[in-house]
Amino acid sequence: MLETPTKTNVEVNRESSRLKRMLNFLNSKKVVPYVFILPFVISFLLLTFIPAVQAFVMSFQKVLPGQTTFIGWQNYERILNPTFYKALSNTTIYVILTVLILVIVPIILSVFLDSKLVRFKTFFRASLFIPSLASIIVAGTIFRMVFGESEVAVANQVVTFFGFEPVDWRYNSWSAMLLMVLLCSWRWMGVNVLYFLAALQNVPKELYEAADIDGANVIQKFLYVTLPHLKPIVIFVSTISIINGFRMFEESYVFWETNSPGNIGLTVVGYMYQQGIQQNDMGFGAAVGVVLILIIFVISFVQLLLTGAFKRGDE
């Protein structure tokens, strides 16, 4: 140990400098961001990207145990059938309704909640937000009971109180859509209200003062001062709602599992699940998934182009 002290020192020095260089390298402005995103990138590649590529390949196959064969475009040719159109039209109507409701209503609610005139704000805010914490399965079960067929179910009691006939909620296409949209809106209303409330805090007070001086009334102030400042959040919320709407599965599943009468509750993801997993046709299910990706991609792209999200603020 005492034989070559100098050597050890040199080694130690060398090692520590190597460590330092290593740390410096990891700490450098160019590298550090990549280190931080590495965990996400790895999990994304392993759990999302590779399976997605495999699903893409699978969409050209007939997948059976021990007999997986390439069948070209056959799965895609079969997609163009009435059931898929039904699923797609259900999903599209659902998306349109949820986007409208989940953008317009939260804006109005958040303006009220931000106003000085409303009392018990915290209570309202909390009660709007709490539904988003509920498990959808639990919420769906309650909804199914509320909208049961029997005359004593809550919804039917309300309906009959107003002098209407009791409704078979889960068996008409209009009420089926109503149930799904209602469940979704009930759950996400509070979250969207939060987004808009946050955005409202950023509207400069001076603008309102200036508007007051110019003699603007409440509605004019809302239209010309508040709304333009909410635009980025509107774009964000509507994009997320569109994407979530197209990938909707649970809201339908909790009411009918995958077999709704007349396919009134069938969604594209529900169709993918039904065909791919339940009917053992994974290649076809994968093809439906690929088509869904394309649809979401195109619609989101067009939407962001139209709303000008690609433009810089100063252009």
Binding site: R247, F249, V269, I277, I293, I296, A309
Partner: peptide
Amino acid sequence: KKILLLGMVIFLLGLLAACGGGEESS
């Protein structure tokens, strides 16, 4: 470039979306 980048982002979101369904039942 920006359009391409945003396009990529949406595409990835879409991938996430399409892979997300059905989680309740597995």
